[in-house]
Design a protein around this nucleic acid. Sequence first.
DNA 1: CCTGTAATGATTGTAGACAATCTACATCCA
DNA 2: TGGATGTAGATTGTCTACAATCATTACAGG
Lengths: 220, 220
Amino acid sequence: MNGMIKRETMGAQLSSLLRGAILSGEFEPGEAVTETALAVRFGVSRGPMREAMRHLIDEGLLITVPYTGTRVLQLTSADIDDIYSMRICLEIFAFEQIWERRDDSFHVALRARHAALTEAIDAGDDIRSIDAELDLHGLVYETCGNGILLSSWSGIRARLQLYWAAHHRAHGITGPKRESHDDYVRFALGDSCERMKDEIRDHMSRGLDKTMAFVSSVEV
Amino acid sequence: MNGMIKRETMGAQLSSLLRGAILSGEFEPGEAVTETALAVRFGVSRGPMREAMRHLIDEGLLITVPYTGTRVLQLTSADIDDIYSMRICLEIFAFEQIWERRDDSFHVALRARHAALTEAIDAGDDIRSIDAELDLHGLVYETCGNGILLSSWSGIRARLQLYWAAHHRAHGITGPKRESHDDYVRFALGDSCERMKDEIRDHMSRGLDKTMAFVSSVEV
DNA sequence: CCTGTAATGATTGTAGACAATCTACATCCA
DNA sequence: TGGATGTAGATTGTCTACAATCATTACAGG
């Protein structure tokens, strides 16, 4: 680690690493994670490790109890319901905000992310497909340039990714289908904002149904 | 401090104290705050103090640059614009969610908070009035029981409170008017959700106008 | 007078040791 | 037997000292 230049602080790098480890399933939802163990795992002291963990706690990916322990977030079906209704609300809001000022760069970026998603699906890489799908949906939030909106989306995104990835591993749930976002992209680049809003509602409804079908068959 | 039992960790208590100090204007927006100074100020070590600051950083109330310094958030008029459009979006969403399951306890709580607001206004306490107004609006978010929604509201609330309080001190801007929320409460307890949604839009529009009138006359 | 550069002070970042608290289990006594 | 109680281990919480980084300023050279 000597020759490395680092403009970012250790804690910041660690929180990215830890988030990646959690989302990639290295730690299961509900599993306990300890400061010392993670510090050893990443080869750092408890200080920066603790700081990274607090960041993920604020982000909502970890749950902690004082003096007792820290665990990976475990979402219930009610949580997923809440998240999907929020997604509809926020994504419609985001499209309303940017609708009149969509430009070429938005078109290009949207098609690029759609292509990346299709490519990941064709490659059969479910984990990357999940990531690409969330990147696709993320564009409209980024384009808004609204800080609060973006941070709300980040929280939603992290939870969804955690949930989908966990269920993918546990129950062999498949990633997104190849044509699942064709309409989404077409209407997002189309002429009618109202039509796009309907598409968002339909899209989310389908996504929630697909997710819930697995949940209800498994949940305790 | 001997006989005191404390179930909360120092860091958690400190973040509340620091948030209060910032919102009450002890530190101006844009002002630098250092870990050591605050640690001395609250009579603790840098560790927990730092933790509390990181929490407010994640919350958005503080801005930090690695190895350099930390400052109190300074909002622009564009930020306020974003915040108000988000408020409309989220508060309408919140009322849609709870509309059919409003019960007696909701009525009672809403009237209680409205009474608290009126009382604060009558007392001429602008700072407390701001707090009471945000408490009043907060009820619908709390009633939803949607974690993501609530945390989004928390971020908005903190920023608004910071902004209003700062302008109150700087330019003698007055707190909310006595009758400003009569319609809000009446329609919130009324029969038409659509009517309530219109009221939210009007209410926010008036609030934004009032806020912006001061901003544009002052901003650099 | 301007410019580049090196010292200096301030601030945050990191490390390791120690204290406080919680959970679970064993123990003791009615 | 059953419940209260103490005890051990684990985990997080806190403190102090030290290192890394950055902004500023003084200063030398052109």
